[in-house]
Computed example of a mutant assay.
Amino acid sequence: MGAVTGLPDLLRECAPQVLAAVVRRYGDFEACEDAVQEALIAAARQWPETGVPEQPRNWLITVASRRRVELLRNETARRRREEAVGHEPAPQVRGDDELALLLLCCHPELSVPAQVTLTLRAVGGLTTAEVARALLLPEATVGQRISRAKQRIRDTGTRFDIPDEFGERLTAVRHVLYLIFNEGYTASSGDALHRVELTREAIRLTRQLHRRLPDDGEVAGLLALMLLTDARRPSRTGPDGTLVPLAEQDRRRWDAAAIAEGVAIITHTLARAPIGPFQLQAAIAAVHDEAARAEDTDWPQILGLYGMLHALAPSPMVTLNRIVARAMVGGPEAGLAALDKIDEDPVLARHHRTAAVRAHLLELAGDRAGAQEQYRLAARLTLSRPEQRYLESRAARLR
């Protein structure tokens, strides 16, 4: 037995793998998730006293499997099935289990919003509140969506396997992996800016998908985007955990191998595949990463790429990032004028990043008092404590 350290993180990391193994063996996603949740609760209660088992995943799988068998015993219509599985050894984690779970959650019988929500919950290991923040939805709405999605999977009798053709699931799968990565790269709440387990998991699953679909340009673009973005993680925070903005990062600490891989993937993909949103975002990330200094950044190229992205896949964050690029090319006043035109957008109007961008542009324009006010507003709007500390420090510098 080992000492209990980082127990919540360990359980979060194990949960998707345990769920995948149990669903593969017994089917019935909803009942298996209930069994896994009971196993996680048992671990949270027992391990602080007994210590963490040498193989925590196997412990959780065994306990969840026993609970699932107990549920089968209570279902008289399935008594014969229980006798068949009751004495089998507990299922083991397989390399493709989580990909199969991902595809199950993205089954075409589910709506795309339900696919995204359920996968973030089951495969990403996010809490309902974290899923709500990632999707910019009320927590109650997300909870209802998850419940309905699980019910739909049960009603349709969907099998747990990897289909030969991904079909309609692929768009949702890519979107889900992107959201999981983003939640890990900039956690929406809490003390830590990064949740490395989520970014690592998103990259791992996207690699699996890319190996299976090497000719899909958007899967390749998504993998390149993740690599090029995650490459900056070593310099995104200072020694005390303080957020360091892109322009002030020590680029010598960026992961050169990840950048080289990401640039190679996106360069190859743009030359042969129909262009898509993830490829454009990866191209933007590559322009940033290939600049040796912040002042060397090719902002006109970035502005052009954001213009293409806005035409192909408009979104509130694309609009905001395009405004930043416009300001870097045409000056802060141009960016501020563009910001004034989006005040009616309900998503952007109360988003902390909008206030942060406005503060930065006001600071560049010489309006210290206005910038200070907007930095403080942005700090109040975000739930991420590292971002709060950073924004408050920017406001304090303008006194």
Rank of each mutant, 00 (worst) to 15 (best):
R200F: 10
R148A: 14
E70W: 10
T354L: 04
G143F: 11
V329F: 10
I41P: 01
L280Q: 01
L60R: 01
A140T: 08
A39P: 09
G125R: 00
Q37A: 15
L320H: 00
Q372C: 15
L104Y: 05
L135P: 03
R73M: 13
P245W: 11
V263F: 07
T237M: 14
A271V: 08
P214A: 08
M1Y: 07
R272T: 14
V244F: 03
E290R: 13
G276F: 03
R12W: 02
R66W: 09
T62C: 13
D215M: 11
D216E: 14
I180G: 00
L312K: 03
L243A: 12
E139V: 15
T158Y: 03
E88N: 01
R159A: 15
D191P: 04
A359M: 08
L243G: 02
V324P: 01
P113S: 07
L205N: 00
E201H: 10
L102K: 00
R78K: 13
P332N: 04
H351K: 02
L339V: 10
T319P: 01
L11E: 01
E201D: 09
A338H: 05
K150S: 05
L118M: 04
D367S: 03
V196K: 15
L223P: 03
L223H: 04
V318C: 03
E98S: 10
T186A: 13
F29V: 03
E49K: 02
R81I: 12
L246W: 06
A31G: 08
E333K: 08
E13C: 14
S384C: 15
T267E: 07
V176C: 03
E30W: 14
L118R: 05
I284H: 02
A172K: 08
A282M: 07
I146P: 02
L136H: 14
D289A: 09
E38P: 01
I153Q: 02
I323V: 07
S384M: 07
L101Y: 04
A256W: 05
V318I: 13
A202Q: 01
R253Y: 12
T199S: 08
V318T: 01
P386E: 09
R133L: 14
A134W: 05
F278P: 00
E49H: 07
T128S: 12
A264M: 10
A260S: 15
R236S: 14
L280S: 11
Y375M: 04
L11C: 13
T382A: 08
P239C: 08
R57D: 09
I342C: 05
I203W: 02
